[in-house]
Nucleic acid binder design. Structure first.
Lengths: 342, 342
DNA sequence: GACCCTCTTGACAGCGCTTTCAAAATGTGC
DNA sequence: GCACATTTTGAAAGCGCTGTCAAGAGGGTC
């Protein structure tokens, strides 16, 4: 394992002081053109690469941005992380990720890891860290929260109510009257909002709210499958399903497939998030698009601005219903499913 | 932004020297029980957290492991990253990711970023960095390569040939004789191996290899869709498709769906990777399981061992065909598709 | 040629931690 | 109670870099 070449080596090689080398590298002060040349040559010759840890220590910053997600492998967070990565690509900053695994204690542990690693700023995605904790952290460094709204903090989130509302409107316009909902966990504010949007859209259309058509899932595929089975088991009558996220919609579609219930022929299905894979689902899934990548990007731009002491107004993030092939007109008042289960 | 409390503060508070505090924290030498107590109390009282950057600089290591992937948001890499994260969770090390975006130059840039950040070890997933470059890096720090076999390096990969072979055997056993293949990019060694496995299995069964049944994709969904369209356009006759990865299989299924070709009724479909979502695809996708998470885990354990100067023998990683509902017996010699396109 | 200004440069003191090294404290045997 | 071996401890140097500060080098003015 070779010895690393340091700034001192460069200084010696170029016949100048370390300070001068530092100045050339960072452009922090004018340096005589000849010396600058000498330094650059020496850097080239020795193939010098600055030690970012030393630099960080000296400057009191690490040039890293901490990102807390729930699960790094989740397609939903994947999109956001990609956005963050992209926004940071051309800057001196680099993201460093830690996952909360959907558990408050692990999330706190993730925060600790990042803080200990001296991240210069923090992006927190969803989760259930107490608000006070985040407020406390925001005293120490720039913090941007994605997917939650916390007074006194810079937050970035979409209108979940509106998104759900759009989805239900779409189904109603297609003629559906009995629309089941696979909700997200009650502990997630976004899930609650989506449920509200569902109810509101029904109410506006003069449709009754039937609690037996709502099942709570946990945002993962298996729970979508289970939800549909529960619905079917209790003999619920429905011609469409609105799942609070795409992953649960995937699960739901399998349950329907198993029963020989065809999408959208017998039942229409709408998801939320519009994951990249939803476009390639079969049938391609109608879903409420949530601009994950853009959210990550905006969050990163925001903390960058805060780090520079600038203000930043994130572009408004809006949801958009992407209609694909998993939704269709209600076939007939007494569709197959209605008969089958009644 | 509050001033951070340092080891010196703790020393003063506890009435001992900084060295002693360091010793208590790291357990690098015995310390009188009373002093240790005093130090621990002081740490508690001041809520001290060591500065990992300073520690890193002093020790000449960063306690980070660099991981180069192609795309952090890809479900395939997501699984591996999760494995890495998991393996590192209970250690002092933390992963730091950088993406190559499927481009050699960006991959090199990613490597540079990680090396500049003084990662203590490197995990390289697939990609096309020149072998010499990796060998050079391995002189400087522990390196484990996943998904490539490079002489002189610690590599971790599955038997792609065998996996593809299994998939084709399965289709043949179901009666299929004309099996199309959506290959991965020729530049990827694993794609090449999978193609070889496909050919070998055909040959063993005494079936001819028909180049017109093979289309090259790029491992992403759209290319799967395009591939099937190309196949159909050229009037290829087939009753089954083996896609070199699940994402292309997803794309393929959409193309088939659009043409009204049913899976597995008209055409059987097999993927490779067995992404988590494949289990919830409709119909649930038959796929060659590649233990992504385990691969990440093993790679991480391996570099950890190397960092400790220990040797490590990774558990053998094997592929396994997971048969789900996207494959079925050949309906009849003259299946729908055969007629339709002939 | 003395004086003042501006620009460039190097010495040096950190950043917060670790790690020798030698001094201080403790313990042992007689 | 002494000489000696053994721990335990603190002082100090250093990891590789930055940034202040004051000295040095030029240049202009009268």
């Amino acid at each position: 394992m070779r010895e690393a070449v340091t700034l001192n080596d460069v200084a010696r090689e170029a016949g100048v002081s370390p300070s001068t080398v530092s100045r050339v590298i960072n452009g922090t002060a004018r340096v005589n053109a000849r010396k600058r040349e000498a330094v650059l040559k020496a850097i080239e010759r020795l193939n010098y690469r600055p030690n970012l840890m030393a630099k960080g220590l000296a400057q009191g910053r690490s040039l890293t941005v901490g990102v807390v997600t729930q699960e790094i492998s989740s397609p939903y967070y994947g999109e956001m992380l990609k956005g963050v990565e992209q926004a940071l690509e051309q800057t001196p900053y680099h993201p460093i990720f830690a996952s909360g695994h959907w558990r408050a204690d692990q999330e706190e542990a993730a925060l600790k890891v990042l803080v200990d690693r001296q991240v210069d700023a923090l992006i927190v995605m969803d989760g259930s860290v107490p608000e006070e904790r985040l407020l406390e952290l925001s005293q120490q460094m720039p913090v941007v929260v994605v997917g939650r709204e916390i007074a006194g903090l810079n937050c970035l989130s979409i209108d979940n109510f509106q998104g759900a509302h759009q989805a239900i409107r779409h189904l109603i316009e297609l003629g559906h009257r009995r629309i089941a909902h696979i909700a997200g966990p009650k502990s997630h504010p976004d899930a609650v909002e989506r449920l509200k949007g569902y109810k509101a859209a029904l109410a506006e259309a003069g449709l009754p709210y039937d609690p037996s058509l709502v099942v709570e899932g946990d945002y993962l595929e298996p729970s979508g499958l289970l939800a549909v089975e529960a619905l079917l088991a209790r003999g619920a009558l429905f011609t469409a399903i609105f799942a609070a996220n795409d992953q649960m919609a995937y699960g739901a579609s399998v349950a329907l497939y198993r029963r020989g219930i065809r999408i959208p022929h017998d039942v229409s299905l709408v998801g939320f998030d519009d994951l990249p894979s939803s476009n390639y689902f079969s049938p391609p899934l109608t879903s409420v698009r949530q601009p994950g990548q853009e959210m990550g990007w905006e969050a990163a731009r925001w903390v960058l601005a805060m780090l520079k002491g600038q203000s930043y107004t994130p572009r408004p993030l809006s949801t958009r219903l992407v209609v694909r092939e998993s939704t269709g007109f209600l076939r007939s008042p007494g569709s197959r499913l209605m008969h089958q289960t009644s």
